[in-house]
Write a protein that binds this DNA or RNA. Structure first.
Ligand SMILES: [Mn+2]
Ligand SMILES: [Mn+2]
Ligand SMILES: [Zn+2]
Ligand SMILES: [Zn+2]
Lengths: 130, 130
DNA sequence: AATTTAAACGCAACAATGTTGCAATTGATA
DNA sequence: TATCAATTGCAACATTGTTGCGTTTAAATT
């Protein structure tokens, strides 16, 4: 088992997540870090944070990938079974922790992970578009 | 309104979809077409087929993007509200047309599209892994 | 406080995927 | 058959993510 270290870059990335109300892409994180570290380092930090269950990855229909902090109380194993909303107008992605889909699977499938992303207009953009 | 044409390449792509039980990536389609046309052309055909509601796009947690034929009776506007299953072992992606998630959204969101992808082990891989 | 050592890093190089502009080709219609 | 916009090929580019390797550094040990 590898031990994990708290580096300046990792701490900075975590701060960026703390400050953000929405999910962030690799590029958005890099901009906020202002060249504090190499972009490869950010990828590696994101990988580590996912393994540590501190953040989770959200993949959108348009191909963009974002990351968000996990809000659940820190359990060893868990499924990120909540929905994510992706606004087609402002392109912000937010966790909807209260929205959990219910569904019935055929037997003989083993489900390890679910990705439930809804897209459309977020409350902000819905209002300003009237 | 642009008119759409039936070209050799488009017909060939459609045949590939007909023959396939699972969703296909751009690369998989290209291999099956055996250099019948340029890879850019395939991207453009896929775009057109999506606009015509003949196929739909499936984006997976691992970042891969696949496409599958729409099975619904051809309606003007529709939401692809069924689930997709992505096998972590064989990497096949299949439409689960019978699995439709139910969920309750907060008001003041407008949902246009949903992307519900489950990953884990498909029946084939589950059996061979015992 | 100095030493140790594996984790983390920077950099360069690469791969995969998708996009754009433009000239040439072609399907469908007249 | 002539027309013409839709489609294509090609080259060039952009973005996103990965890998290898030598160097730096966190943190545990002495
Ligand atoms: Mn979570
Ligand atoms: Mn469909
Ligand atoms: Zn919005
Ligand atoms: Zn499988």
């Amino acid at each position: 088992m590898k031990t994990t270290r708290n580096t300046a870059a990792k701490t900075a990335v975590l701060e960026v997540f703390e400050k953000s109300k929405t999910a962030l892409s690799h590029t958005e994180i890099q901009k906020q870090l202002n060249d504090l570290c190499d972009r490869v380092t950010i990828y590696r930090i994101l990988d580590r944070l996912i393994n540590e269950d501190v953040i989770h990855k959200i993949s959108n229909l348009d191909g963009t990938v974002k990351y968000a902090k996990c809000n659940h109380s820190h359990q060893r194993v868990h499924i990120h079974n909540h929905a994510h909303f992706s606004c087609e107008n402002c392109h912000e992605i937010t966790c909807l922790e209260t929205v959990k889909p219910s569904y019935i699977m055929p037997h003989n499938y083993k489900v390890n992970e679910i990705n439930f992303t809804l897209s459309g207009l977020c409350p902000n953009c819905l209002n300003s578009n009237i």
